[in-house]
Design a protein around this nucleic acid. Sequence first.
DNA 1: CTGAAAGCGCTTACAG
DNA 2: CTGAAAGCGCTTACAG
Lengths: 339, 339
Amino acid sequence: MAEQNGKRLTMWQIAELANTSKSTVSRVLSNDPHVSEETRKRVAQVVEEHGFRPNLFARGLRGGRTGQIAVIGRWMEEGFLANVIKGMDLVAHNHDAHLLVCLAHSSEDYVNLWERFADGGQVDGCILVAPPRELLNERVASHHVPAVLCACQAPQSRKGWKQVDSVVLDNVRAIDELMELLVNKGCRQFVYLKGTGDTYDAWERNEAFDAYITRHDELSADVIKGAEWRDSARELVLQYLEGRTGLPDAFVCFNDVVAFGVLEALRSRHIRVPDDVRVTGFDDTTTADFISMTTVHVPSVLIGQETAKLLFLRLESDEETRIARNTVIELTIKYRDSA
Amino acid sequence: MAEQNGKRLTMWQIAELANTSKSTVSRVLSNDPHVSEETRKRVAQVVEEHGFRPNLFARGLRGGRTGQIAVIGRWMEEGFLANVIKGMDLVAHNHDAHLLVCLAHSSEDYVNLWERFADGGQVDGCILVAPPRELLNERVASHHVPAVLCACQAPQSRKGWKQVDSVVLDNVRAIDELMELLVNKGCRQFVYLKGTGDTYDAWERNEAFDAYITRHDELSADVIKGAEWRDSARELVLQYLEGRTGLPDAFVCFNDVVAFGVLEALRSRHIRVPDDVRVTGFDDTTTADFISMTTVHVPSVLIGQETAKLLFLRLESDEETRIARNTVIELTIKYRDSA
DNA sequence: CTGAAAGCGCTTACAG
DNA sequence: CTGAAAGCGCTTACAG
């Protein structure tokens, strides 16, 4: 159906078959209104019949749309990226586009990947998922390819990234609500497991926690740094508990995976949750749901969708006005057994 | 570094700067041995200096390597695809290639995506992750693009897909070992939660279970069909329990997610695991690990790597001999609390 | 409304 | 060992 003898048909052959010229076939394919209804029908017919699909390389080379969107991300635990990609793919599919997924192996690698696409000419647009914060430096800000930041916001300063669309999570409000809830349960003394702050989200959650504590004199908090994964979180919490006799009222974690480590540490010390101490995560992974851990639900598929929408909005409108759009994703607290 | 004023440099400009011709630059870039050492050095220098990167569309149009590998998959629960992609990206990275990830929304969509790439001319190669079994029909077997099957094997019959490389899991051995283990624990009466059998893996696990029961006269089994997700599994098990007084010795599930549903159902009926009944899953998701559920570990990242290796092996050797390679991935039982 | 022609940036015979 | 030229399959001014 798609081909005769193995080789794909070219536009020229379609033109022959439809008794017209390449130009006209091209026009029909791109919905150019300057084609008579009759011709359009005839061409569309032949195109359909032979399952013709224009060669994307030729199209890309010519400078037109390529139907490819680059997605750059770092592989993160528990499938945030995976779900975001799913959401993007859902939207891309509606716009007849494909995702070119590039996984960065390190912050440096992330920047390299971005530089590779930034000049343009490879893809129609580029989505940067949770980039390392160093990407926001001016050094790498200049770019020609339309780009959208996902789970990250460009700095307010007007330099560099000023005109980039972005999708961000309402981390601050989520942390505030979470804290309020814990305080209402009687928590006064907290331990916060802090992310490295390399990504915007981690950084913002850290800031939000600090700010909340600072605003409330009656509260106090210890901070545990360097707990990136389940194992390191477990060890660090064990170490923390070693040093003191009493218990804090709650462990607040910048993400779920770290919270799992905390739970493991507590379990091994026979400390009961939530009776002796409360624990909260952030992300709402499937595991969190299954073990009924209190956390903040992050609608990752939706985030992917919204990000892709922003990109296609930009790609498909010919507006030259460069207003930067910023979508804020609301997060909801999942109040469960661990708190 | 990468550009002067926003536009990427072309090969022609590099040639000018290096005082030579496009042809020679092209030769240097593709490691053609027919270039003098001196010229090569001079060109390489300029290329390096300007961070020149050849336009992939031009290259692709010309029929050369595009550095893009299509990966077609269906979004499956619990990140199997995500991990597989990670593994593939690891390997692709070493070969300076990118992944074009296409998520199928249904079996039909999967076939459509495949047909889109099968003719060739879009990507260097195509990886089919856990395709629906209908893809193995002869109808869609003919293709010009190099392809590899992941978590799926082409039928033994010499038709259609005969010459396709593939990576498969040793499902049969895993099920055998798992059953042996349960039998040694005294289990005689089983309930099997069956996959739809739409993918090769699900189908093969179903077959392996059936075969095991058939081979052992002392064992008996009920089969619950149609439990695809946690919710449906829970409901179906609840329904199953409703109908009878006694309990089976073990619930064997074709994957972890379904096993979670079983655990929920048992929990809600206050049936203790493993004291009253044993439960096993398949996949070894992070949740399974965390809640200490017995399951079969599927090394999904490794699977991705092996699949990609097979593809690049084919792409980079000029062998015309079409031997199909088949990599079998060994699985290991994770014997934990739930059994 | 339609077609002939130029050109996107490469690679690869073909000639030297 | 090197370069001039053709051509991959499109799109888009340019002319009619």
